[in-house]
Write a protein that binds this DNA or RNA. Structure first.
Lengths: 222, 222
DNA sequence: CAAATATAATAGTATTACTATCACTAAATA
DNA sequence: TATTTAGTGATAGTAATACTATTATATTTG
């Protein structure tokens, strides 16, 4: 996996950034450290000024890469979905049994990202925490519709479409494949969040993961 | 229902506000118009200054009721969950058949709030839109844990607990009642959001509602 | 070596998210 | 009736935010 990814590049919709952060050292430091800083202080308190200080660079230089912190969050989200899609395809590709394939897919999209695959400057484990805590904010805005038209959410939508196809492969008569797919994806993140902050309204904890919940769900539903 | 509510008062955790907005005309105008304004321009663009202008009052007066716009959002959310809990209890109370009771409950928590029950200055239809679009932001912050300890999310958690009890009444061996309950509640809001902004990743549309999806789900799962 | 490009440094702006102070009015209370 | 006091409004002020613009300097490339 590590080797494969060394020749592949995660591709994010180009309209999200002004200048591709993958093309320079500064760009990579911006992305790498924005993940750390957002994780530390939260998206609301995160500013380009603070990030500039952290990376020993100037606020104005960061603005050459991203129009706003909101766009940066969308970049990080898209990057994560692209990375997840890659994991998803890789780990399910060779499975021919439809049931088994779907189970694997659900595992991939609902599991905690625990080990840093480390093929890049991006720490996926920490990025995953940001996805759990902040990713909703990337689309819950007044600008969703225009941003959606611009293609900002293409990868996210493609992941859901892929899952829905696997659902239909198991049961072609199931009438809510897309809704189930989107529910598992967002619901998985949400259960991880609850486990951390609202343990009284989830059954998930150590030894009983969101993955177990959703695997049990699809096995009894489809 | 209208009559019943005229003697009942929706009760929100008192730590959320500085001064109870229900106790004055200005307070009610703040709440009433904040709902309209947040719906119009979105929570990010919403400010107390703009709200002050809208209600012909002063920014500083609004700060006498709410410490910040974040607290105001939490107030609106709590108010909604309290209102929903009331609907939930009222509409399921007299149903003795457990299956039927749960179905009704799922209907109540996943349906679109369409008619304004109009028992107060609060427009529930528009408030519901805010819940769909903005309510996640009330807990997705770095302050969740301390705010949770202060009891800000009590009503929300109680609604989920109630649903989970109804799930267990149908199938006492189902091992994920809380997770299923929280998934239906948040998932319902999310499907409504997708229907509006990302129709390509949901099966929900006119004539095929989030309610249909979740009713079908529980009926085949439990 | 010149030209283009990337970055840094500095300054500046409108707005935000408040806090503080003071004045005024209406209602409650002594 | 006089007097607190509570509620609201008006004004001012502050530190920080979310940028934009300009100029200088360093680095890369043709």
């Amino acid at each position: 996996m590590k080797d494969l990814l060394s020749v592949l590049k995660i591709s994010v919709p180009s309209k999200i950034y002004i200048k591709d952060p993958e093309t320079s050292d500064l760009g990579k430091r911006i992305v790498e450290n924005s993940i750390l800083l957002i994780n530390e202080i939260g998206f609301e308190s995160f500013t380009f000024k603070k990030l500039g200080t952290k990376i020993g660079s100037n606020e104005s230089s960061i603005y050459r890469y991203f129009e706003s912190k909101h766009k940066l969050l969308q970049y990080l989200s898209s990057w994560y979905w692209a990375w997840l899609e890659y994991q998803l395809v890789l780990e399910t590709f060779s499975i021919s049994n439809t049931q088994e394939k779907l189970e694997k897919a659900v595992k991939v999209i609902t599991r905690t990202v625990e080990e840093d695959s480390n093929f890049s400057h991006i720490n996926e484990t920490i990025l995953y925490k940001i996805i759990v805590n902040e990713s909703s904010k990337s689309f819950l805005t007044k600008e969703v519709d225009s941003e959606n038209k611009e293609g900002y959410f293409e990868i996210y939508k493609r992941v859901i479409t892929r899952i829905s196809e696997m659902i239909l492969a198991v049961n072609k008569n199931y009438p809510f494949a897309l809704s189930l797919a989107s529910t598992i994806l967002e619901g998985g993140l949400h259960q991880h969040y609850l486990k951390e902050h609202f343990p009284s309204i989830t059954n998930c904890k150590k030894g009983k993961t969101p993955t177990d919940f959703f695997i049990h769900l699809i096995n009894n539903l489809l």
